[in-house]
């Protein structure tokens, strides 16, 4: 006869908050203004490569760039708020350290809450930290794509190859329906 298993007090804290809904995803980047929130050494090489690829495959209505440094005050804050209002979707990056990853997620969440769908690029080694931040901000389903940690010292060719190899994944993260 098999004994019943032990009944124990669950030693784990489970999150109680209800996730907030992500903003509806666009069907395609066609005809949209892309926003590039940029922060990390040499990350702009990746975004430039990505921009070239995007324009070669879609009709891009425009590209806006904003710096991802925190905290933001005065005119720098004004520029960030203007960015929020002026783009149709945003590629947010790069979360390459324990401060940068949470800050990238915070910016992405702020954009989502302002009606801008996002894809956030995070170092593969910091995905756990990024997702923990997203959960704490009520967005466990935030769309995150990981990149190798060492993008800051990759060659231009390596960056170009990386942009090409992750392009499909990023577009999928942007357009995939919320329940998909």
């Amino acid at each position: 006869m098999t004994s019943a298993g032990l009944l124990v007090v669950d030693p784990v804290a489970h999150r109680l908050s209800t996730p907030l809904p992500l903003i509806e995803r666009p069907g395609s980047p066609d005809g949209l203004v892309m926003g590039l929130r940029e922060f990390w050494f040499n990350y702009d090489r990746f975004t430039r490569s990505f921009e070239v690829l995007l324009k070669s495959r879609y009709k891009v209505a425009g590209v806006a760039r904003v710096d991802g440094t925190h905290p933001r005050t005065g005119r720098v804050l004004d520029a960030w708020l203007q960015f929020n209002r002026s783009v149709d979707w945003a590629l947010v990056g790069f979360g390459g350290c324990g401060g940068c990853a949470p800050w990238a997620v915070k910016d992405a969440v702020e954009l989502e809450d302002n009606g801008v769908p996002t894809v956030t690029l995070i170092s593969v080694d910091l995905e756990g930290v990024a997702r923990r931040t997203a959960e704490s901000l009520g967005h466990p389903q935030l769309r995150i794509v990981t990149l190798p940690h060492y993008i800051d010292d990759m060659s231009d060719e390596e960056i170009g190859s990386l942009a090409a190899s992750t392009f499909g994944q990023i577009i999928d993260a942007l357009v995939r329906p919320i329940d998909g």
């Binding site: 124990v8 007090v9 669950d10 489970h14």
Partner: peptide, 14 residues
């Protein structure tokens, strides 16, 4: 109650 709960293990104390 969500703040404290019981769960059953497969294992027994034996």
């Amino acid at each position: 109650l969500p703040t404290a709960s019981l769960t059953r293990l497969r294992a027994t104390d034996d």
